[in-house]
């Protein structure tokens, strides 16, 4: 794989992470499904996945950057696995909606495992110049991460996130 194609692959990874987070936002805001603490932590792990590709886009492919991706994916897979196991009993309805038959924490587990497997070593001495696609990818994931931080603050307020969220803490006015 050429260095230019490796950079494109990392930009595609950033777009994919943004897409995952934006789909989660759709289910949160359009369908009114509040993310639980484990759901939020899986989103955090997806944003952690983005640091490695951004380093690669800016400084060129390095083994350490892929190491960061693997570490973030391992943490995300551990969190998603715990949530899958919480809902593994027969008759359990699972948490929130399913997409194509699987709940989001199951998709998250598959995504984190895929992130560990889909990055072959692509090493070059110098980073090739960046185009608009790569630059937009970086700023998109940065904006989506900040939006997630604001959303989590809206949901949890200035304290620990509730175990079972039922309303937005900062918007809630008790009757």
């Amino acid at each position: 794989m050429t260095p230019a194609n490796a950079m494109k692959l990392n930009a595609v990874a950033l777009y994919a992470i943004s897409a995952v987070l934006l789909v989660a936002f759709y289910f949160q805001f359009e369908l009114g499904e509040l993310p639980c603490p484990l759901c939020l932590l899986q989103r955090v792990a997806f944003t952690a996945l983005a640091v490695g590709p951004i380093l690669t886009l800016r400084h060129g492919p390095r083994p350490g950057h892929y190491g960061l991706i693997i570490l973030a994916a391992l943490l995300g897979a551990a969190i998603a696995s715990r949530q899958v196991l919480l809902h593994i009993m027969p008759g359990d309805a699972g948490y929130d909606s399913a997409l194509l038959g699987y709940h989001f924490y199951t998709w998250a587990l598959l995504g984190f495992v895929a992130a560990m497997l889909l990055f072959p070593g692509q090493f070059a001495e110098q980073a090739p110049p960046l185009g608009l696609i790569e630059t937009v990818a970086v700023w998109l994931i940065f904006a989506v991460t900040l939006a997630n931080g604001a959303s989590a603050l809206l949901e949890c307020g200035f304290t620990w996130c509730p175990a079972t969220p039922v309303h937005y803490e900062l918007l809630y006015k008790p009757a």
């Binding site: 603490p37 944003t47 952690a48 640091v51 380093l55 991460t145 900040l146 604001a150 996130c161």
Partner: peptide, 27 residues
């Protein structure tokens, strides 16, 4: 609050990865 802090830390890591020293980003 706890998740928001985590998102902000990783946003800061992205910012450092893009604009600053990669060692800061890794930290």
């Amino acid at each position: 609050m706890d998740s928001s802090i985590a998102f902000l830390i990783f946003a800061a890591a992205m910012w450092a990865a893009w604009l600053r020293d990669p060692r800061v980003a890794v930290f």
